[in-house]
Design a protein around this nucleic acid. Structure first.
Lengths: 225, 225
DNA sequence: CGACTCCTTGACAGCGTTCAACAGTAGTGG
DNA sequence: CCACTACTGTTGAACGCTGTCAAGGAGTCG
């Protein structure tokens, strides 16, 4: 919808490699840097000053939960470009899986060449798309590494926040929808709701079961890993 | 990296609502359409001719596996804009969860107003970003609804394809990395590898365990739901 | 009122995790 | 070059979280 044409994932392997070189020109790449196996290329939350292209080797990008559970978002292989962010900071940590040679390009040179031409209107469309991407990335962590209770707590907090922290919220979706969103069964979701009710972090109408009040948002946040 | 500024998810609720109206002007919206509870707004694979904004109600977007397992990607609430695609077709099905009023905007009018101004260079950056999004969406389905064996088969096929279907491939990552990518433990991944080896869909070097050959790609694809 | 949907709860099963043992490989330093 | 250690991968056994199956109640709608 947003853009004119794109390659279908998995059909014709997209020449992402050339795209970036094309875009920025060889001269803006610093000479290749070598990262030994296990080395961090950049950390989650760090300022995103560069975009990277893999010459040889491989890179993993991942998020961590506080207790160390790790969710790898993607593997990057020779030719792949990674570290393209829509904000000022990286949303992942990136590490070399094996000895890896990377070419870097300054964020600023990308801006000069391409992004400054983007109009305000376009930026709005893009921000819609990047919102989707951030949401998807967080959901990957949830689905890959969180327990059923953590997922339900996260869901409640997400809805609460999107509705502007109302005193009471009425969920439009049923338990099966929530389950299919969280990668669970409706019974597991129901049990998690009951548990949170019993722990007095949550209160819900016994007849409709859709109208609810968050009694302890801090507690729920603690529940959500 | 790509764009100048974005709002942080969950901090200041982003005024996505106004953005689209802003962008396209009220007049390009057709009058509101009402979708009864359970109605499909658009189907996966359908041509993406419109973008939607919710006036009242709620919408779910989801993907299905062949046997009916469903993964809901996102819920959309009043003010939310959805159906923004980077290709010609929708990658999800969208359904009204409750009686829902939607405003629609033609894809073409968005293009006229904003997207045609995007330069070729910018399009390349954008295609990098949208590649990420598609990958993330597929990964959500995998993590939410696939079994361990389906996940491992999907992983093998992904690597095979990205490496251009080589006769033999050497994985740079260890079993733990694969596990953390697929939302499993390394033991489960190892067992799935052994199973696929025993079924003669796969062959791997008994010493390094990294060098492998896909013997039956069709069979693996069948394994991958 | 009857059929249907939705939610909860209980009992049990099973998939994937956890814990553990073992073996082969790679890297290190004497 | 060889011990020594760390790392990696496989496999087995037992556990447990979540799924499956089932029953029942309460709300909704024609």
């Amino acid at each position: 919808m947003l853009f004119a044409r794109t390659d279908i994932e998995g059909e014709s392997p997209p020449p992402a490699a050339e795209q970036l070189e094309d875009l920025a020109g060889r001269e803006v790449f610093s000479s290749e840097t070598t990262y030994p196996k296990g080395t961090e290329v950049f950390g989650e939350g760090e300022e995103a000053n560069f975009v990277y292209r893999i010459a040889t080797g491989a890179v993993r990008t991942y998020k961590l939960l506080s207790d160390g559970r790790r969710q790898i978002n993607a593997f990057h292989l020779p030719g792949d470009v990674f570290g393209v962010e829509d904000g000022m900071t990286h949303r992942f940590t990136a590490e070399a899986i094996v000895k890896t040679r990377l070419r870097m390009i300054r964020r600023s040179s990308l801006f000069d060449k391409a992004t400054t031409r983007i109009t305000a209107d376009t930026n709005k469309l893009i921000s819609l798309a990047s919102r989707n991407l951030r949401h998807a990335e967080n959901h990957i962590l949830l689905l890959g590494r969180k327990t059923s209770r953590e997922r339900v707590a996260a869901f409640l907090l997400e809805m609460d926040q999107r509705l502007g922290h109302p005193h009471e919220m009425i969920l439009p979706m049923n338990r099966r929808d929530i389950a299919d969103y969280l990668g669970l069964t409706l019974e597991t979701v129901s049990r998690a709701f009951s548990l949170l009710r019993d722990k007095e972090m949550l209160q819900f109408d016994e007849s409709t079961h859709r109208q609810l009040r968050l009694l302890d948002r801090k507690g729920l946040a603690r529940f959500d890993a």
